[in-house]
């Protein structure tokens, strides 16, 4: 079965592998600490760690888009900012 029509590239494959690793990591975390550790953070509504991952990934996408739109195509700093943002989300949201 050929997947050439999907036009895979190494960077996009790595991107999706990262997402997959994150999901597997979250599943392992859930296995060892079930319940999703719900809490009410600075956004004043309850979030589980799955919600926090979603907020992190969605925010990361918009950080990259904003960086690309306002600053330029070098996205390494955007990636660093997205990681800091994700840490902040997991710590405070």
């Amino acid at each position: 079965m050929s997947f050439s029509w999907m036009a895979w590239t190494l960077p996009t494959a790595m991107f999706f592998l990262t997402i997959l690793v994150l999901l597997i990591g979250m599943s392992i975390w859930e296995y060892f600490a079930p319940g999703g550790s719900p809490r009410i953070g600075i956004l004043r509504f309850e979030t589980t760690r799955g919600d926090r991952l979603f907020i992190s990934l969605l925010g990361a996408a918009f950080i990259h888009l904003a960086w690309l739109g306002f600053i330029g195509p070098n996205l390494w700093w955007a990636l660093a900012l997205a990681v800091v943002y994700a840490i902040g989300v997991f710590r405070f949201v």
């Binding site: 029509w5 999907m6 036009a7 590239t9 960077p11 996009t12 999706f16």
Partner: peptide, 9 residues
């Protein structure tokens, strides 16, 4: 996934 792949090519 295919759309993401297309978007960078």
């Amino acid at each position: 996934m295919t759309v993401v792949n297309y978007s960078v090519q």
